[in-house]
Nucleic acid binder design. Sequence first.
DNA 1: CACACGCCTGAATCGCCCC
DNA 2: CGGGGCGATTCAGGCGTGT
Lengths: 379, 379
Amino acid sequence: MAYKRSASLKVVNCEAGKPAWLDRIHKGHCVSQMAALPENSVDVIFADPPYNLQLGGDLHRPDQSKVDAVDDHWDQFESFQAYDAFTRAWLLAARRVLKPNGTIWVIGSYHNIFRVGAMMQDLGFWMLNDVVWRKTNPMPNFRGRRFQNAHETMIWASRDANAKGYTFNYDAMKSANDDVQMRSDWLFPICSGGERLKDAEGRKTHPTQKPEALLARVLLSSTKPGDVVLDPFFGTGTTGAVAKRLGRHYVGIEREDVYIEAAEARIAAVEALDPTVLKVSAGKRAEPRIPFASLLEAGLVQPGTELTDAKRRWTARVRADGTIAIGEDAASIHRIGAKVQGLDACNGWTFWHIDSKKGLTPIDTLRQTMRDQMAVAAV
Amino acid sequence: MAYKRSASLKVVNCEAGKPAWLDRIHKGHCVSQMAALPENSVDVIFADPPYNLQLGGDLHRPDQSKVDAVDDHWDQFESFQAYDAFTRAWLLAARRVLKPNGTIWVIGSYHNIFRVGAMMQDLGFWMLNDVVWRKTNPMPNFRGRRFQNAHETMIWASRDANAKGYTFNYDAMKSANDDVQMRSDWLFPICSGGERLKDAEGRKTHPTQKPEALLARVLLSSTKPGDVVLDPFFGTGTTGAVAKRLGRHYVGIEREDVYIEAAEARIAAVEALDPTVLKVSAGKRAEPRIPFASLLEAGLVQPGTELTDAKRRWTARVRADGTIAIGEDAASIHRIGAKVQGLDACNGWTFWHIDSKKGLTPIDTLRQTMRDQMAVAAV
DNA sequence: CACACGCCTGAATCGCCCC
DNA sequence: CGGGGCGATTCAGGCGTGT
């Protein structure tokens, strides 16, 4: 029998008509626990499934310290096939409990998100957006063999292809984003500091705790106060804590007792905000970093151009890859600037100039030009 | 018969030994045209496949398999299957022409990239990064029902799981990015203005022309000058134009005459950059190896010299055979450095110092002196 | 008490060459 | 082809300690 949303459910403080499965953590496997919930009963699902990382040996930092990798048993799968079967099972169970106008968020990395996304499409979910979480402080690539893996991907999808009535708080998102549409790339720090749950010995309670700011934007964009939010991989309960704070109901599913206990204590300490103050604020972003290579890519500087310092003591030649060279000696604008002066450091942006009929122009001027162009383009 | 790379292929201006299929556009379907190329012949593939799911009748339709779940939507399943079959076919053909150490880039949006990525994993490609192209000036979401779709996703993968020798110009990327690692999120404007190809009536020639800046970073990061770059969905030839400008060879495949003509005219107008500005910035990895014993042979270090670490916690004595010893314990500068610290590994060049009136000097500076002497001697 | 300095850490599919 | 040695490789930020 399907659970019908009652009016009382919308009122957070009315406990009388509230189902027993609401605002609590269900211990067990996500598939069986979701199967025990009434169908068509959940407004939004946020899922942070295992990423199926396939790590080789140990990885050490340049200072020889060992990287604390995610090697937990729950992230181990025998094959892509096994992972696909698991993904299919929990997505089907999730789809059953979702209301017809419900939506689902799934977060992942390049290890798993493509398989999850394809499976979602196969099962009939309809993609609304893929949203990129850009990390302000990602872990570096220690061996210098790849780009720094600086983001994770979230898929936001509706239950059905032609769903029209799903919740998207367009105006709230726009207002929160300096009155321009909220984009599909979000910038947040990773979860650390006081927000990160730790045990008595100071070790992190959960290896992949997500930042509350990320969950807050998810819930503020796609739920209304009083909505029911389900997280089938609850972990230490970030989804529940944010949902409670924002006046939404939560349903958590988790297998590990350690995580459940930590989540319950955490959520109990959360105070729900007064509905009238549930507004998002967004600070001014810092000036975007412009790689010197971008000036070449934008055509503001040509490969082969000669750069010189303000007193024309040294000249260097711009190379196509964004380095500059004096003779065979090539490096960044900063390194070469430091080297010719015999210093440890140098701001290449202000040190190097381009010679033209109008005299010497610091390349920093070109950087500002580029920023202006980007700002105009963004409007 | 596999095509073997000849020495002449590496020299851009030497046309004599160049295969007939290089630096030109092949008209036809990507699968059949790739099948006509020699295997193991391409260093990098950049692919911008179509993502509309309503493909023409030229697609091979696989045998219909039984749908076993009530939740599967047959109509979607059918079109997704057709798209998957097409994706599988061109990825297999691409994999055949790729060299063992080759890499592939595929760009797409949330409509298709998840299916493509999952298929790539199924076929044995190994993901190195997913890279997000953040658009400075994306199209707005006119209906206000979703987030502004402000990015596209690129997958960068090696041909095989354990490929170690693929090209990644780490130092060039880092130098070009203010001396910090290049991240997996790149910011570029969409292709517009003078760069955008248009016909006589001012209509854009191709609906999805990619910006040259994007291709430039792709090629500068993952290819060397003289490498062969294949684009099986050539369109108006952005890949070819950038490859030619950067001194790389290109191979284009395209079905439509209109695009081929536009691309040929476009590439003909491109001037290749001077090879001296195309040199790839290399870090210490490319420096010639200097055995520690060479410093003794050159007289830069005397047997019996005492070495110490930066904090003078340990001292070791240099022996005539190039080992260093603490008491009876003798081994390489690296092994002894690791041993005293209780670590598995240690870079002895930066760990050990020589004490003099001017203070502690790392032996790495002596190595650099030696390299400089060798460079002078070589001229 | 303010500031400088150094240590620690985060979802990681993280060598290359020679014998 | 496997094993072993050389020696290259990190960004942002929180937090504790010392001056």
